[in-house]
């Protein structure tokens, strides 16, 4: 069946099997492979994207459920020449090692900063408890999000296409 959605600001229409998960639609039909799959029980958060501005684990949503919606992936929130403050934060603070969980971490953190521009350490940790990282022990992820919050507080703009609009 046909699904149509705006992904990172561009409209796409594809013919998919009804059972196609949003994450597979993004990765396999649109070749947006920045969104990763780390588990099959919606526990790891590597597949987190934004659907109509809400952080969603794209392995728990069917592509057809996102029909007509706006989807933002890691590829859409900033580019190497115009990074989102969170991308800068993760880079500056060494908030990643293997990089596999990173897109999900950034997308989940973006939602946090949207609702809470200056979260405490505990608020960051609580908000990210749906995202596994096996490399960093989370220490530098917390610092990365704090750093991003500081950049945004100083008026740093989200790079690329605005994250959630």
């Amino acid at each position: 069946m046909n699904v149509t959605m705006n992904v990172n600001g561009k409209p796409y229409t594809r013919d998919v099997e009804p059972r196609t998960l949003l994450v597979h639609f993004l990765r396999e039909d649109l070749l947006l492979t920045g969104t990763h799959v780390g588990c099959d029980t919606s526990q790891c958060g590597a597949c987190t994207v934004h659907v109509d501005g809400e952080a969603v684990k794209s392995c728990t949503v069917l592509a057809v459920q996102a029909d007509g919606m706006d989807v933002t992936t890691i590829e859409g929130i900033g580019t190497p020449g115009d990074l989102h403050p969170l991308q800068t934060g993760f880079w500056e603070k060494h908030g990643l090692q293997c990089g596999y969980c990173t897109p999900g971490m950034i997308m989940a953190s973006a939602e946090l900063l949207k609702h809470n521009p200056s979260p405490s350490e505990q608020e960051i940790r609580y908000h990210l408890e749906g995202n596994y990282c096996r490399c960093t022990g989370y220490h530098n992820i917390v610092k990365a999000v704090q750093h991003a919050a500081e950049i945004m507080a100083q008026g740093g703009q989200a790079g690329g296409q605005a994250a959630d609009d």
Partner: peptide
């Protein structure tokens, strides 16, 4: 130094 490899990971353009 911040890492040279990070730009591809933070922009979703790694190659796994």
């Amino acid at each position: 130094l911040k890492r040279k490899e990070d730009p591809r990971f933070i922009t979703g353009t790694g190659n796994y």
